[in-house]
Computed example of a mutant assay.
Amino acid sequence: MEDQATRLRKLVERKISGGAGGLQKETAQGGTSMPLPGGARVIAVTSGKGGVGKTNLTVNLAIALGKKGKRVIIVDADLGTANVDVLLGTSSRNTLLSLARENVQLEDVLIRGPYGVSYISGGSGMEHAGELTVMQRQMIFSKLSACDEWADIILVDTGAGVGRNVLDFIMASDEVLLVITPEPTALTDGYAVLKSYRQLEATQPIRLVVNRVYDMVESTETASKLICTAERFLHMELKSLGFVFDDASMMKAVRRQVPLLAAYPDSLAAKCVEALANSLLSGRPQRVKLGWQGFLRKFFHNMH
């Protein structure tokens, strides 16, 4: 019997040719674009526990990728606690679950938000997604498949933890970003995600993003702990994509309901996110120019 992830993978592979009607579509930047023949790159952004900054990273990463000319759609799949529209300071009438209704199409739920971010809201009530009938789920998956034609990159913001819904989205993606922090609980819960991932015999590449680090040394040490543990006990090769500095600008941006890259584009954390976007596109290691702020940060830290 097929599970949700299996059906979704088959739908994505099949490519729905008539769903978009062959018409030009308005982009978040106001221009027009035609469907992509090759399909989008689907990246699941997940975490072992809540509160590590997963959704914040997803939104700002979408902005950074958009600045580099990529068409990005965020699918807010954090069931029950969707926060993408909260971080953007917007609201949405239709959500992902609205696609279960016959009269609702993808263009009705795909929101052209501010800062060039296009997204599909998870909204409230997503915790009832498990109550959908098989036909309703197939209808949602079928309509969502059209996203593959209108984006270069689709970021799927999953829920935290190892619930079945989270694992379904992870298994259906092309690659996975696992967001952790230096906190011991974040590392433990991150390992739980890797263990479940391994038990499902997943083959998608999974990379770490270490959020809220003080410096690159802390990032390297934190990532190494999880990488070594995964290799020793799970016989699993794990790599690090990079890190994001712990920056007061991030919390200020959240309170303003304005993404970091829009509110404080010159902050250290914003530079880290842009470097992560470069790494995703180029495959090269993350390189962050710390500048004067970085100099001051290290100088005063060394005085203690």
Rank of each mutant, 00 (worst) to 15 (best):
I227H: 03
C228P: 03
C228H: 13
C228I: 13
C228Y: 09
C228T: 14
C228M: 11
T229C: 13
T229N: 09
T229V: 14
A230I: 09
A230W: 02
A230T: 04
A230F: 01
A230N: 00
E231F: 05
E231H: 14
E231G: 13
E231I: 02
R232I: 07
R232K: 15
R232S: 14
R232W: 08
R232V: 08
F233T: 07
F233R: 03
F233Q: 03
F233I: 08
F233K: 07
L234F: 06
L234T: 06
H235L: 10
H235V: 03
H235S: 13
H235K: 14
H235M: 06
M236I: 08
M236A: 10
M236C: 10
M236F: 15
M236Y: 11
E237F: 04
E237H: 14
E237S: 13
E237T: 15
L238I: 06
L238G: 12
L238C: 02
L238Q: 09
L238K: 04
L238T: 04
K239P: 04
K239N: 10
K239L: 11
K239W: 02
S240C: 10
S240L: 05
L241E: 03
L241M: 04
G242A: 11
G242N: 06
G242S: 04
G242L: 01
F243H: 12
F243E: 12
F243I: 00
F243M: 13
V244Q: 04
V244I: 15
V244F: 05
V244N: 02
F245T: 09
F245Y: 13
F245Q: 04
F245P: 00
D246S: 09
D246C: 09
D246A: 10
D246G: 03
D246T: 00
D247G: 05
D247Q: 04
D247C: 01
D247S: 06
A248L: 10
A248M: 12
A248P: 08
S249Q: 07
S249F: 09
S249W: 08
S249G: 11
M250G: 04
M250I: 15
M250Q: 11
M251P: 00
M251C: 07
M251V: 14
M251I: 15
M251N: 06
M251K: 15
K252L: 10
A253T: 01
A253M: 00
A253L: 01
A253V: 03
A253W: 03
A253P: 02
V254Q: 10
V254N: 09
V254S: 12
V254T: 11
V254A: 10
R255P: 05
R255A: 11
R255M: 11
R256T: 03
R256M: 09
R256S: 14
R256K: 15
R256D: 06
R256Y: 07
Q257E: 10
Q257G: 08
Q257F: 01
Q257R: 13
V258R: 09
V258I: 14
V258E: 13
P259Q: 05
P259R: 01
L260F: 05
L260W: 00
L260S: 02
L261N: 00
L261T: 01
L261V: 05
L261K: 06
A262M: 01
A262S: 09
A262P: 01
A263R: 05
A263V: 01
A263M: 07
A263W: 07
Y264F: 12
Y264K: 06
Y264Q: 11
Y264V: 00
Y264P: 00
Y264A: 14
